[in-house]
Amino acid sequence: MARKGGFSNQRYPLAKVAAMCGGLVVRPSERIVEDVQIDSRQCSRNSLFFALDGTREHGLSYVGDAAARGCSAVVVSRSDKERAVAMTQPYKCALILVSSPLSALQSLAREYRKMLPQVTSVGITGSCGKSTTKEALAAIASTLGNTIKTPGNFNSEIGLPLSILQLENDTQFGIFELGIDHVGEMDRMVEMLKPDIGLLTNIGISHLEKFTSRSTILEEKGKLFHPGMKMGFVSDDCPYTSALEERSQLRLKQYGFSGVEALDRGLDGWDLSFEGEHFHVSCVGKHLVRDVMGAIQVGLALGADKKDIAEGLEGFRPMQ
């Protein structure tokens, strides 16, 4: 979730934020926006609250609570205008009307990303191994400069825009995890992030019930490698590399266990040696070492050297 002081620690006029969302401001206000929230309990003065449609509850039910906590504005569907006006009437809270609060959140993230061209962004997807790769790469990138990463598993259509909104004016690297479970989701994620570099860990059968076939999973996850991407990576055991290259017209770089010496310490993890530099990672299982190797190869592409890699990964522990 976008942290307090987000938006690069800047203060944005409400009218500008509304335009970025593609929304219409009702009850105009001179207030500013400092952070974005989807949980009314996290709202405070100058927050922007998005009333998203949840699986169990609708965010509209919490518009009044968000307004009472000092929000600058709430973003609601046009169809909910009358209810939202009534709920916010007692407060100095503007309304931004949109066709879809989720699409508006994604639009805001997309436009915000465009304002930070200095950020080199990396998008990581795959049926498994995304989080480990993301965490390992962020550890390496952090040795090179200010790095923002997907917090936890905020890798969905909701989590990605919130993650993007954590970028700051001095951010150099953004490491983002892209998790999808239905057709069309990757299109929207890529449109928001436009990653400079992409990494696909593998193609498995996660969410097969929604995708219906492995070929559909391949097609959808392969959309990560969008036109204009500078560099793409896949594991050297991926049987679909040729198909991915044909679709994307991008020559994909492969990664694996070559170039690293690995000593298995069982439950204590692995002792690794890369180009003469030694470090220990607390990863149990060789599959996690492959994820770390993917992070190393992307780290090299970002400008890391062997010492940066050893420094970043020493003591690395995957997400639990």
Score class of each variant (00 low, 15 high):
G5I: 04
Y12I: 15
P13A: 02
P13G: 07
C21Q: 06
L24W: 01
I38C: 08
S40H: 11
R56Q: 14
E57R: 10
V63D: 09
G64F: 08
A68K: 15
V74Y: 11
V75T: 07
V75Q: 04
V76F: 02
V76R: 06
V76T: 10
R78Q: 13
R83F: 04
V85A: 09
L95H: 07
I96N: 06
S99F: 04
P101N: 11
S103F: 01
S107K: 10
S107C: 04
A109E: 08
R110S: 11
L116W: 13
V119I: 10
V119W: 01
V119D: 09
I124W: 11
G126W: 05
K130G: 03
A138G: 07
A139I: 03
A139V: 04
K149T: 02
P151G: 10
L160R: 05
L162H: 03
L165Q: 04
T171N: 07
G179P: 05
G179Q: 05
V183I: 15
V183R: 13
G184V: 06
D196K: 12
I197N: 02
L199A: 02
L208E: 05
E220C: 08
H226C: 10
P239W: 12
Y240G: 11
S242M: 07
S242D: 15
A243W: 00
E245R: 08
L252F: 12
K253F: 01
G256K: 04
S258T: 08
E261K: 15
A262S: 13
A262V: 12
A262T: 12
G266N: 07
F274T: 01
E275W: 00
G276I: 04
H280M: 05
S282N: 15
S282Y: 14
K286A: 01
R290N: 02
V292W: 01
Q297P: 00
G299T: 10
L300V: 14
L302S: 07
G312F: 03
E314T: 08
F316E: 12
